[in-house]
Structures are given as structure tokens and as C-alpha cells.
Design a protein around this nucleic acid. Structure first.
Lengths: 190, 190
DNA sequence: GTCTATATGTAGATAGAC
DNA sequence: GTCTATCTACATATAGAC
């Protein structure tokens, strides 16, 4: 009844999201997306003008997804410190994929920073979303320099993910998560 | 006198090294390397069988380069803690490129982890080189769990680089380096 | 809205003259 | 050793029938 189109569009975006993550943006072709979705290559241009437009839609979808994750962190815990704990638990929750493919957001920005700075700016919106939320939590903890703490936490998680992937070492994630959560517990009003 | 060939080979490797860093492996074509070096595309196959072989040569060259950097850290300082300080100073020394293109080794491994795990294993040799050296330094410091400390330091540096690149923020590198060096100073035998 | 056929460009790789 | 011309495959994107 005319909503088949929207279903197809969503299917393309979800599939592209996964493939951009697990193969990379440049290494994902329309053929790849067509093979997974069963939608012919030519149809893509009914929904999107260019491949870049698909990336824009993927970033929008990720903003939605990670926005919901942040909401879940808020609803599961009322105390900011516990919310940060839940946030950092993402390292454990996505352990297997992180080791194999790295962080979906970090690796996308890293890839696009090299030859598509315009798209990198688009992709980093997901990091901005998370950083802003983290600033709220550190501010609620009455930490000094909440902005710095927020970026520090993201940097710690990115570094852990990069090295875990380099050395195919999921145990490193688990060990580092313990240390990271100790660090979170040390964050006080000063 | 027959050594022109070796010069050309070295020129190809050095140019590929730079381009693989600043554009990425997959996004660097033979045409790109030919344009920079002035060597015709067809000639590449006199020196290398495949593009993958060029990557292997680039990794060998990087092992040489970073081996020399580690030697310099050793020769500049006799105390292990000071050697670690010099090592971490790489963040400041390469600040501009790190913000624009990320870490040459980290981003290469991250890219290849997605669709060329075989080449990722090759590329991570540079990390193994650095980690082994760091283990020596932390062991000389009589730290417990020197292996863990070595990987922790690499992870911290990777995370700092990723976020600095994401937010185009070289000031974040400088601030984080101060905190990282405080951490190095806290590493004691206990 | 859906699909096939195709245009246009470029990738890695090869052949063979010089 | 060096260079040009070319092969095959596949990329994004378009045209137009149904």
C-alpha cells in the first residue's frame, strides 16, 4: 500500500550500517548491499541519490540507535556514576564485534578522516551525541572539567578497542574495563 | 649501473608508505603512487608481484623506521622511565599528522582488520615491536605485570589519537600527554 | 515503484616492444 | 630494466521499459 518503499529504504540503511561497519565504507559496494537485501542495485537510486546519501542515512540511524542506548543507561540507573558504569559496559556487551571489527563509530571516522573529511564531520555527530551525554553525567557528579572527563572516557574506550582488535584479545577488553570502572569510581568533586 | 632498480624500489615503498597512511590502503591506487613517483604503473610489477607485496615491503620499512625511533629513545635516556617519556612524546612530535590522519599503524590495522585479516596480522608486527620494547622498559622499572602496562600505554596513546582526530583537536593531544606522563611517573615497583 | 540493461570510469594486473 | 597498450573485473551511476 505504498509503504513497501519505506520498508525497502529502511532495509537498505540497516544493511549498509552493518556492512559499513564490518567491511568499511569504501569496501562496501552497492553489489554487496544488493546481495544481502535482495534489492536490485538500480533501485537504490530511487531511495538515495548517491552512496554518500546512504552514509548520511546510516549516521542518522546510528544517532537514533545510540540515543536509545543512552536513554537505557539513564533509565537503568538514576545515579550518574552508575550511568557511566552502564555506558562503559558497552565494551563488554559488544566485545566480540569490537575485537573483530573495532568500534563502529571510531573506525568509520578514522576511515573517512583520510580522504573524505566532509563525511567524517557528518559521522562524528555520533561522538558528539555521546560526549554531550557524558558531560551531563560528569557535571551531575560535580566533577571539575566535565568536558575533559567526557572526552577522556571516550578516548580510553577507543584505545582499549583498537588494541584489543590489533591483538585479537578480548581478555584485554575485560581487564581494561575493570580498570576503567575503577577510574570512574575515582571521579569525585575534587 | 644496475642500482637504479633498487632506488626505484625504495622510492615506491616510501611513497606507498606515505599514501597508505594519508589515504588508506584500499584508497591508494597504483595510479596514485605512479603520479607521485613518476614511475609508470606497469613498472611496479617488475619490483612487486601484487599490491599486497607492496604492503609487505611497507611494513618492513616501518619496522626499520620505528626500530630506529626506539633506539633513539634508548640512546637519549638511560633510565627506563625517561625512555618511556621519550616514547610518549611521539604524540607531540607527530601531533599535526595524528590529528589529520590518525596513527599510521593503528589506522592501517583497523582498516585491514575489516576485510584483510591476513594483512592485518602482517601490519601488527609494528605494534609487537613496540610492545616488546615497552615490556622491557616496564620490566626494568620493576613494575608488576609489565606486559599489561605495555599494552595499556599503547592503548592510551591510540585512544588519544583517535579522539584528537575525530574532534580535530590537537590541544587534546597536548593535555592528554601531560596526564599520560603523570601516569608513567606513577608506575612503581609496588 | 521495480527491474534490466547499460554507460562511464578506474581498479589491479599482464603482454610484449624496446 | 623501462615503458605503452591493453585485459578483465567491478565501481558508481543512469535510462528507460514494465
Amino acid at each position: 500500500m505504498g509503504n513497501k518503499g519505506e520498508n525497502n529504504r529502511q532495509l537498505i540503511v540497516e544493511t549498509a550500517d552493518q556492512l559499513f561497519y564490518k567491511r568499511g565504507y569504501h569496501q562496501t559496494s552497492f553489489r554487496d548491499i544488493a546481495d544481502v537485501t535482495g534489492i536490485p542495485r538500480g533501485n537504490f537510486y530511487y531511495y538515495f541519490k548517491t552512496k554518500d546519501d546512504i552514509l548520511n542515512a546510516v549516521v542518522e540511524a546510528r544517532l537514533q540507535t545510540y540515543g536509545e542506548i543512552l536513554q537505557a543507561c539513564e533509565q537503568t540507573a538514576s545515579e550518574p556514576r552508575q550511568r557511566l558504569m552502564h555506558f562503559s559496559n558497552m565494551l563488554a556487551n559488544f566485545e566480540e564485534d569490537l575485537v573483530q571489527f573495532g568500534c563502529p563509530i571510531g573506525t568509520l571516522c578514522a576511515e573517512l578522516a583520510k580522504d573524505r573529511k566532509d563525511l567524517k564531520q557528518v559521522s562524528r555527530a555520533v561522538f558528539v551525541l555521546m560526549r554531550d551525554w557524558l558531560v551531563e553525567q560528569f557535571t551531575a557528579l560535580k566533577c571539575v572539567k566535565a568536558e575533559d572527563k567526557a572526552t577522556d572516557l571516550l578516548a580510553r574506550m577507543q584505545g582499549i578497542t583498537v588494541m584489543a582488535s590489533v591483538f585479537d584479545d578480548s581478555a584485554f577488553i575485560r581487564r581494561s574495563l575493570v580498570e576503567l570502572q575503577e577510574w570512574i569510581n575515582e571521579q569525585t568533586p575534587a
